[in-house]
């Protein structure tokens, strides 16, 4: 193990890690928006939109992110839609994550007792108000374990971005292995950086999960 080599290339990995985190953050936020929208659409069974949401969720959950990215990055330019690697990565991650988040929110909504919905309506709240003030706060709290699991899953999925020419951690590692044959150092840095990114998030997730167990209303949680 050459420690000098590790010291020399750590900044390169740090830059790559920041790129990964930036795209993951944008992708996860957009996934939450898409997921929330799909979950609400499916909960109220809004015609047409419900069918679209169901179709989207099944397509997205039953295909690999890598194939989705290839389609976006290499396929779409053939019909004149040219996207940068970063744009493809964000769109791909959102396309994948949206369905996972939708299922997480939906499982939360299903777990909120029906009487909550009925009571809110009988108090004169509209459907929108019921969702916003009564159902969603409880559903989101119930969905926290699934949501945090999805966040970790999506950050791990970002490792395929090198396939659309983004200089992420995998890309740097592969590059260095090819350039200098310092395979051990390149791989140690790769593993170390993924641990630095994912371990705190994973610990935070289990902490949050424990806190959220008290958030349920009455005896439901």
């Amino acid at each position: 193990m050459e420690w000098g080599y590790i010291a020399k290339y750590t900044p390169m990995y740090a830059t790559a890690a920041l790129l990964t985190l930036r795209i993951a953050a944008v992708g996860i936020l957009l996934s939450l928006v898409v997921g929330l929208f799909c979950a609400v659409v499916r909960h109220f069974k809004i015609p047409i939109l419900n069918a679209i949401a169901v179709g989207y969720i099944e397509l997205s959950r039953n295909t690999p992110l890598l194939v989705q990215l290839f389609l976006l990055y290499f396929g779409l330019p053939k019909i004149g839609i040219k996207l940068s690697g970063e744009a493809c990565a964000v769109i791909g991650l959102t396309f994948l994550g949206g369905s996972y988040m939708a299922e997480a929110f939906r499982s939360g909504l299903v777990a909120v007792e029906k009487i909550q919905h009925e009571s809110a309506l009988s108090l004169g709240l509209t459907n929108g108000q019921t969702m916003r003030y009564v159902l969603m706060p409880q559903a989101a709290a119930l969905a926290v374990p699934a949501l945090t699991a999805n966040v970790i899953f999506l950050i791990k999925e970002t490792s395929v971005f090198s396939a659309v020419a983004l200089a992420d951690l995998m890309y740097v590692a592969k590059d260095l292995i090819g350039l200098h044959y310092n395979t051990d150092e390149a791989l140690v840095l790769l593993v170390a950086f993924y641990i630095i990114i994912l371990l705190p998030i994973s610990l935070l997730a289990s902490l949050l999960e424990r806190r959220m167990r008290y958030a349920g209303f009455g005896g439901t949680a």
């Binding site: 970790i152 791990k156 999925e157 970002t158 490792s159 395929v160 995998m170 590692a173 592969k174 292995i177 395979t183 791989l187 790769l190 593993v191 993924y194 641990i195 994912l198 371990l199 994973s202």
Partner: peptide, 13 residues
Amino acid sequence: IMPQLVLLFLAYF
């Protein structure tokens, strides 16, 4: 905690 691709790299390289 490791992405599967990292594990693949570890095994392959």
